[in-house]
């Protein structure tokens, strides 16, 4: 768990982060959103003390980060930046091994960990371990960047626009992969982005920043139904609101008993995806199947609309 308490930072005359407090629970993904220049990156960089706060403190599992030597603190916190900053003179394996090497792990343990991570990120060790970053595609570089940040099994991962350099097609896949890996490892993540779709897709909680202040910190659905300020409403997009709400709910929430004709929709799909299917396939209802493919009910346009109205 990380607790951010009254963090503030000035650069000269301008205040960049103004008295920001929030708590990220174990295994949660907190996404910090806001316009550029709102202080998101500075806030993130104060967590691993790349920027030293003027006031306030950060507690990780109850321990004040100011009491931990900087380098040691950063060995324990994964850090991924836009563009990844991979070391161009080191191979993929050497890049991933950076922090374990700094920590003085023995060679066998490092090799095993590198292989494990390459597997986890679907990069074949035989093919990729000895490649240099310039030989990789953008998506592969991104995966190596995240693998490198996770190498020493940090409990906390900080990500600053980690998908910013990817094209939209690869970005969606990379986000799904990150979610899957995060669920598997249970890593707590604080992620900065200016992409609202990304925030709603990934965040278990979203922190909205505007002009150095934290305007609202809430679950995605609460952000839509109870925006704290006009700025939040504007940021989430009033017209988008119902669809974002549907994308946060799963088929399970609006499933009805009974059956219907057609190819089934899986129960884990979002209501937004289900509605899209219903519209596109010209049906008023479709069957719902569980993960194994067995039919367990039906989902209808009326049911989704009813559920959507109840959320608003």
């Amino acid at each position: 768990m990380i607790e951010i308490e009254h963090l503030s930072k000035r650069f000269g005359e301008s205040i960049v982060v103004d008295d920001v407090s929030f708590t990220v629970g174990e295994g949660e993904i907190a996404v910090v959103v806001g316009t550029s220049g709102a202080g998101k990156s500075t806030l993130l960089r104060m967590i691993n003390r790349l920027v030293v706060p003027d006031a306030g403190r950060v507690l990780i599992d109850g321990q004040d980060t100011a009491t931990i030597p900087e380098d040691e603190l950063r060995h324990r916190i994964g850090y991924v930046i836009q563009g990844y900053g991979l070391f161009p003179h080191r191979t993929v394996a050497e890049n991933i091994a950076t922090v374990p090497r700094l920590l003085g792990w023995d060679r066998r343990r490092i090799a095993a960990r590198v292989e494990e991570l390459l597997d986890l990120f679907q990069l074949d060790p035989g093919e990729f371990a000895q490649k240099f970053p310039h030989q990789l595609s953008g998506g592969q570089q991104q995966r190596v960047g995240v693998a490198r940040a996770l190498a020493a099994k940090p409990a906390l991962l900080l990500m600053d626009e980690p998908f910013g350099a990817l094209d939209p097609v690869i970005r969606g896949k990379a986000q799904d992969d990150l979610l899957a890996i995060q669920r598997r490892l249970g890593t707590t993540i604080v992620l900065v982005t200016h992409d609202m779709n990304e925030a709603f897709h990934l965040g278990s909680r979203i922190a909205v920043m505007d002009q150095a202040r934290l305007v609202q910190y809430a679950k995605p659905a609460d952000l839509l139904t109870h925006p704290a300020e006009a700025f939040v409403e504007q940021l989430v997009g009033t017209a988008e609101r119902p669809f974002r709400l549907l994308s946060l709910a799963s088929v399970q929430d609006a499933m009805e008993p009974g059956s219907a004709e057609g190819d089934p929709i899986t129960v884990s799909a979002t209501l937004r995806e289900a509605l899209a299917q219903l519209i596109w396939r010209g049906r008023s209802a479709l069957p719902v199947a569980d993960a194994a493919g067995a039919p367990i009910g039906r989902i209808s346009v009326d049911g989704i609309l009813k559920h959507g109205r109840s959320l608003a």
């Binding site: 380098d71 950063r74 991979l86 070391f87 161009p88 950076t98 940040a149």
Partner: peptide, 21 residues
């Protein structure tokens, strides 16, 4: 600067950044 930022963020001290990066 990005490479150096990453090096710093991973906890390399000034000497390690100089010699290793």
């Amino acid at each position: 600067p990005r490479t150096l930022e990453a090096a710093r963020g991973m906890g390399m001290n000034a000497r390690q950044r100089l010699w290793q990066v």
